[in-house]
Computed example of a mutant assay.
Amino acid sequence: MDTTALASAAAGANTSQLQLAVAAKMMKTNADQEKNIAELVQAAADNGQRLANVAAGIGRALDISV
């Protein structure tokens, strides 16, 4: 192999390593987002369970005007 081909191969390897690092970071970010969404859905379900025992019509005639 000549020097140019060796340098080109090294540069390609560095680029591939950077691309893998970016892909890993994106996958971690997506996993974190999915975890946060799951926690949000669970919190909404928990709040819904607390409101399940409220009598029908509660909050319908609430006046929030200032």
Score class of each variant (00 low, 15 high):
Ser8Cys: 10
Gly12Asn: 14
Gln19Leu: 14
Ala11Thr: 07
Thr15Leu: 09
Gln33Pro: 00
Val22His: 09
Ile64Val: 13
Gln19Cys: 07
Ala56Glu: 10
Val54Glu: 06
Gly57Ile: 02
Asp63Gln: 04
Lys25Ala: 12
Arg50Thr: 04
Gly59Asp: 14
Ala21Phe: 11
Ala23Cys: 09
Ser8Glu: 10
Gly48Tyr: 04
Leu18Ala: 15
Gly48Lys: 06
Ile58Asp: 06
Met27Ser: 11
Gly57Lys: 02
Met27Pro: 00
Ile58Glu: 08
Asp2Ala: 11
Ala10Gln: 13
Asp46Ile: 05
Gly57Glu: 00
Leu18Asp: 14
Thr4Phe: 04
Ala56Ser: 08
Ala7Ile: 14
Gly59Leu: 10
Gly12Met: 07
Ser16Asp: 12
Leu51Lys: 07
Ser65Met: 04
Ala5Lys: 06
Ala44Leu: 11
Arg50Glu: 02
Gln33Ile: 13
Gly48Arg: 05
Ala61Asn: 09
Leu20Thr: 09
Val54Phe: 08
Leu6Thr: 12
Thr4His: 02
Leu18Asn: 10
Val41Met: 10
Val41Gln: 14
Asp2Gln: 02
Ala23Pro: 02
Met26Asn: 09
Lys25Phe: 07
Asp46Gly: 06
Gly59Lys: 09
Leu6Gly: 00
Arg60Ile: 04
Leu20Pro: 01
Asp63Trp: 06
Glu34Cys: 01
Lys28Met: 02
Met1Asn: 07
Gln19Thr: 06
Gly48Gln: 08
Ile58Pro: 01
Ala24Ser: 15
Gln17Ile: 08
Thr29Cys: 02
Ala9Trp: 02
Ala38Arg: 14
Asn14Ile: 10
Asn53Trp: 04
Gln49Glu: 12
Gln17Tyr: 07
Thr29Met: 05
Asn14Trp: 03
Lys28Thr: 10
Thr29Phe: 03
Ile58Arg: 05
